[in-house]
């Protein structure tokens, strides 16, 4: 890992990382690149998020769908764990709740492959502070 030796280093690193994310979104085959985040805090894992995540990775791999599956922390929807957020290229992120293996398979088949929504969407009901600072 590169060492951060000054604030300029950090800023450069941040910009690089941000553009890397953008690059990923605007890759050569945007119609295929899907991003999935799985809420993996203690509560999510206890309700089966790990199984869901493993299933998604294997299933999407088996079907050769170009996807990045990552873990993240608590999304706050404890009543609907496990929760996942799916971002199709060019689309807004969509959060699905109660994603057991059956639901995960349905999401892959219907939403990820055909852009067709499935029951169990969780409307995002919060605003996040805008990280852009006033340097």
């Amino acid at each position: 890992m590169t060492k951060v030796k000054s604030l300029d280093d950090l800023r450069k690193m941040r910009d690089d990382l941000q553009s890397k994310v953008n690059l990923r979104e605007k890759s050569d085959h945007p119609e295929k690149m899907v991003q999935i985040k799985v809420s993996m805090a203690t509560c999510g894992i206890a309700s089966g998020a790990k199984e869901t995540m493993n299933f998604l990775i294997e299933e999407l791999d088996a079907q050769a769908i170009d996807t990045v599956v990552t873990q993240t922390g608590c999304m706050g929807y404890c009543y609907a764990e496990p929760t996942i957020e799916v971002t199709l290229p060019g689309e807004k992120p969509v959060v699905f709740g109660h994603v057991d293996l059956k639901k995960a398979a349905e999401i892959v088949e219907k939403y990820i492959k055909n852009g067709e929504l499935v029951d169990g969407i969780i409307p995002v009901n919060y605003e996040t502070v805008d990280e852009k600072n006033n340097e």
Partner: peptide, 29 residues
């Protein structure tokens, strides 16, 4: 929109096991 996330701004958004994602969100700035 009743909820405003400041302390939880990155929870459920970044991968907590990857410092790069935190830095991309202005971490350590």
């Amino acid at each position: 929109k009743k909820q405003l996330r400041i302390a939880l701004r990155n929870c459920g958004f970044i991968n907590p096991e990857n410092i790069e994602e935190y830095i991309a969100r202005d971490g350590y700035a």
